[in-house]
């Protein structure tokens, strides 16, 4: 029986860390289902503030999709770690902060921290899009350390953390590493959309 991602996420205890597995063969459908569930079903319906860490696609692209889902500008902020490296940040978004490189993992942590402090909210969500993109730029030891520290920090502050993961054909160790740090994995392919 297909699962409803939004319902699953809403039912999680505060401070949970969840991996959302996306099938690359159905990337567009799965990605939109994830955005719909996180930004609209969970974000808007629970009146939460979402901090979206954009590493796969630039914040401007995700913001366009978020607008299509009627997400208000004061309910989402971006940590964009990809536009700089693409030399594509001439028109910065008012609700985004830009990190120079996806290799600056501490800076990503600090920008998330900055946004959590700047926009204190009873319910916050952090979306990391994605573990695979971070793995392209960072060695596995650094990435494991990053996720271990960040996710524990967010858990202690009752922040729901969602990590997007594209399922890879070959074993790269990313999946194993993520399994060690998240509380739950949701396979988007099994979810009803």
């Amino acid at each position: 029986m297909p699962i409803d991602i939004g319902e699953r996420l809403r039912g999680l205890p505060t401070g949970s860390a969840v991996a959302l597995k996306i099938d690359p063969r159905e990337y567009a459908d799965h990605y939109f289902a994830v955005l719909n569930a996180t930004l609209r079903d969970v974000g808007s319906e629970t009146n939460a503030h979402t901090i979206y860490v954009a590493v796969t696609n630039p914040a401007a692209f995700v913001w366009t999709l978020a607008q299509a889902l009627d997400v208000p500008i004061d309910r989402i902020s971006f940590v964009d770690a990809i536009s700089h490296i693409m030399m594509n940040y001439a028109n910065p978004l008012p609700n985004a902060t830009y990190v120079e490189s996806p290799r600056a993992l501490e800076e990503i942590m600090l920008r998330v921290e900055y946004l959590l402090r700047k926009y204190p909210h009873p319910r916050s969500i952090v979306v990391i899009d994605s573990v695979n993109s971070l793995a392209i730029h960072n060695p596995p030891e650094l990435l494991s350390e990053f996720f271990h520290i960040l996710l524990n920090n967010l858990k202690s502050r009752s922040v729901l953390t969602l990590v997007l993961e594209t399922v890879e054909e070959e074993q790269t160790g990313v999946e194993q590493m993520l399994n060690l740090v998240v509380d739950e994995t949701i396979d988007v392919a099994r979810a009803g959309r």
Partner: peptide, 19 residues
């Protein structure tokens, strides 16, 4: 610790070593 000078003040995060 890695330090960042943000508009709301100095923030710190553990310096990742990766071994």
């Amino acid at each position: 610790y890695v330090l960042e000078l943000t508009p709301i003040g100095i923030l710190m995060a553990p310096h990742l070593k990766g071994g």
